[in-house]
Amino acid sequence: MKKYISEFIGTFILVFAGTGAIVINDFSGGAITHPGIAIVFGLVVMAMIYSLGDLSGAHLNPAVTIAFLSRKEISPRDSLGYIIFQVLGGVSSSFLLKTIFPENTSLGMTLPSISPGGAFIFEVLLTFILMFVILHVATGAKEKGFMAGVAIGGTVCLEAMFAGPVTGASMNPARSIAPALAAGDLTHLWIYIIAPVAGALLAVAVNSYLKEE
């Protein structure tokens, strides 16, 4: 149970800091800026990996959990528990932000500024890159080690920096589900659920091919 609670706490903090930066940027008239938001996402992911990596692996992302499940590095039972608590953590955080900033209607939602098809491809590729990095710095299903937090957090920051204006650079179904539910807008949510999972599984397949003897 402690692993699940760790995933709840980690995803809660991820969504609170990351989408909170977007909400506060709107509230303050752009004080944080787009690069600032990207840095916040990278830093909070890095911080949670170093804080929770030894407890749950700090997945904080259903797509990452599903990818490790496909590699049989996490049990089906644990993967289901992780995903449930990740989503609950994110949703709790978004509703808290809604309570604090009732005038904000988007709550940091991920919305495409290009066609849905283009956004889908973008999110597949973004999550592929993220999961590819994770697979090369993680120990089994545990994202830990001296450089894991820097590498993964840095990748999140990098992708949020260049792709944020295009799709919101979600790479994480829980991160997108949470503000969409709180804001009551599920229009494009399918992109941010299916594409990250597809991208993470593609990274697993490519990584397996590269490491085949």
Results as ranks from 00 to 15, higher is better:
Leu126His: 05
Gly140Val: 07
Pro165Ile: 12
Arg71Trp: 06
Pro62Asp: 01
Gly140Met: 05
Thr110Pro: 09
Phe128Gly: 06
Ile24Glu: 12
Pro173Glu: 06
Lys3Thr: 11
Gly149Trp: 10
Leu210Lys: 06
Asn207Gln: 12
Lys98Thr: 00
Leu201Arg: 06
Leu55Arg: 12
Ser115Ala: 13
Pro179Trp: 04
Ala183Tyr: 00
Leu202Lys: 09
Leu97Gln: 11
Phe41Gly: 04
Glu123Thr: 00
Thr155Asp: 09
Glu123Phe: 05
Ser28Pro: 04
Thr167Glu: 11
Gly149Cys: 01
Glu7Gly: 09
Phe128Cys: 05
Gly140His: 13
Ala169Trp: 08
Asp78Cys: 03
Ile121Ser: 14
Gly36Cys: 00
Ala63Ile: 03
Met1Ala: 15
Ala58Leu: 08
Ala182Leu: 12
Leu107Tyr: 05
Gly164Gln: 07
Phe85Arg: 06
Leu158Trp: 11
Leu130Trp: 09
Ala63Thr: 01
Lys142Thr: 12
Glu103Thr: 14
Phe12Glu: 01
Ala58Ser: 14
Tyr192Thr: 00
Gly81Ala: 03
Ala205His: 14
Ala178Pro: 03
Phe85Thr: 04
Gly90Ala: 00
Ala141Trp: 02
Gly42Ile: 01
Met131His: 11
Pro165Met: 12
Gly90Trp: 00
His59Gly: 06
His136Leu: 12
His59Lys: 07
Ser28Tyr: 01
Asp54Tyr: 13
Leu43Gln: 07
Ala148Asn: 03
Gly168Arg: 03
Asn61Gln: 10
Leu210Asp: 07
Leu186Ser: 09
Phe146Arg: 13
Leu88Glu: 04
Glu103Asn: 13
Gly42Cys: 08
Ser94Gly: 10
Val15Phe: 10
Ile66Arg: 04
Ala148Phe: 05
Val124Thr: 04
Gly18Asn: 05
Phe41Tyr: 15
Ile22Pro: 03
Asn104Val: 02
Val197Asn: 04
Leu181Val: 05
Trp190Asp: 09
Ala182Glu: 10
Ile193Trp: 10
Ile129Phe: 13
Thr167Tyr: 10
Tyr209Asn: 15
Asp26Met: 08
Arg175Asp: 07
Gly153Trp: 07
Gly140Lys: 02
Ala67Met: 05
Ile114Trp: 00
Ser51Met: 13
Glu123Arg: 00
Phe95Gly: 11
Asn104His: 12
Gly164Trp: 08
Met109Lys: 13
Val15Trp: 01
Leu80Cys: 08
Val23Phe: 06
Ala31Gly: 04
Gly168Thr: 12
Gly57Val: 01
Phe41Pro: 10
Ser208Arg: 15
Ser93Met: 09
Cys157Lys: 05
Ala151Met: 15
Phe101Leu: 01
Pro196Leu: 01
His188Ala: 14
Ile134Asn: 05
Ile134Asp: 07
Gly199Tyr: 03
Gly57Cys: 08
Ala180Arg: 11
Asn207Trp: 15
Gly29Glu: 07
Leu69Pro: 00
Thr65Cys: 04
Leu96Trp: 03
Pro112Phe: 11
Ala182Met: 03
Ile24Leu: 15
Thr110Arg: 03
Leu88Met: 13
Gly164Ala: 04
Ser6Cys: 07
Ile193Gln: 10
